[in-house]
Design a protein around this nucleic acid. Structure first.
Lengths: 195, 195
DNA sequence: AATAAAAGTCACCGATCGTTGACAAATGGA
DNA sequence: TCCATTTGTCAACGATCGGTGACTTTTATT
């Protein structure tokens, strides 16, 4: 009979744990040191396995990086909102994405590597195109959509850079409430193009 | 007599040209590919000299990087201004620094390398402490100075990241006038802490 | 218990890196 | 012209990198 063999619904078995260990170690080191700064040997050592296993499970360092950066990049959707609260909605989603979602580490990895890794840079541009632009576009002059989205991206990426990469003390010290209160209105202004 | 021998006021001779060639090549490649991405051999090839000369003139890659990033980091001073135009003054100095000063390349080098090079990251924090904070501090509640300066830095660094590193098309396309008009008021708000 | 597949170990390849030191060529003052 | 200093060339070092393949151990099935 064997009526549940086509899919593999249960497979907690064996090697998948090693796979997950490697991915966890890779995410951690990529997030800390970027693509170049994290070697396969370092990742293997952190995962307590042999370096050859890293290549065995993921075919190359590039592929491992892509998995580590993208696998869990399930960004929370922006709940539909009205024009008056779009800035507030964006900054709240930003905080949710960067501090309370499984994608948080992936975002740090991407941003840290984007400065010197073209694949990561392209992926950041892609996140902009799919996550920022469509959200901002409907709330102003369509001819302005690119400019408005670009301004929003500049503020969001700057906040992320200062808070999660450079760890600029006064920016790290900001509470969620302060960020929402101070940055929200700026995003509102950028997103709608109002003066 | 030899009354001018303690200092060496004139030395256009010979090797200084090679030195300058190496520095120029290093600045260009560090700015394009970051610290790790630019090898001494690449720099030497671009300068049309032997890799060993790079070490001969600068003692190590670290020292060369420090020279390339800091040598010409003479940021233009912010002219004193009144409270009402501080945002405008900051964004104008930003554009002058990043697009019309010999420090421009050094800034790109620092920012691109800061994501994965601790020396560069520390230097960026230093630029923040010496260039942003003191400018912003006098125009609001002294207890707020850190927060206000941090918000200003987040917007400035974000703009630089999008425009000069990631080259996000809509941000690259912004004219100086647009940037001054759109970002200036935001910096004004951040710097003064007004609502 | 026998056995085939899976999982893990180990030594090593070729490439590239920063750096060194021995040596040759060019330079300039005596 | 002689000679010492500067300037440039060359080969190679040790280390590290990503990646490969042969091998042994474990696991699971019959």
């Amino acid at each position: 009979m064997n009526f549940m063999s086509t899919n593999q619904p249960k497979k907690p078995s064996k090697s998948d744990r090693t796979r997950a260990q490697i991915l966890d170690a890779a995410r951690q080191l990529f997030a800390e040191h970027g693509y170049d700064g994290a070697s396969i040997r370092d990742i293997a050592a952190l995962a307590s396995i042999d370096p050859a296993m890293v290549i065995r499970y993921f075919r190359s360092k590039d592929e491992l990086f892509a998995r580590a950066a993208l696998l869990d990049l399930q960004l929370p959707a922006t709940q539909v909102t009205d024009r008056a609260s779009i800035g507030d909605a964006i900054i709240r989603r930003f905080l949710r994405t960067w501090e309370n979602s499984p994608s948080a580490t992936g975002m740090v990895i991407l941003l840290r590597s984007a400065a010197s890794n073209e694949f990561a840079a392209e992926k950041v541009r892609d996140v902009f195109a799919t996550q920022v632009r469509p959200v901002v576009a409907p709330f102003g002059d369509p001819a302005d959509a690119g400019r408005r989205a670009g301004l929003v991206a500049s503020q969001l990426l700057g906040l992320a850079t200062c808070r999660y990469l450079l760890r600029l003390p006064p920016v790290v010290a900001l509470s969620h409430e302060e960020i929402i209160r101070d940055v929200g209105p700026v995003l509102q202004r950028y997103a709608t193009g109002a003066d």
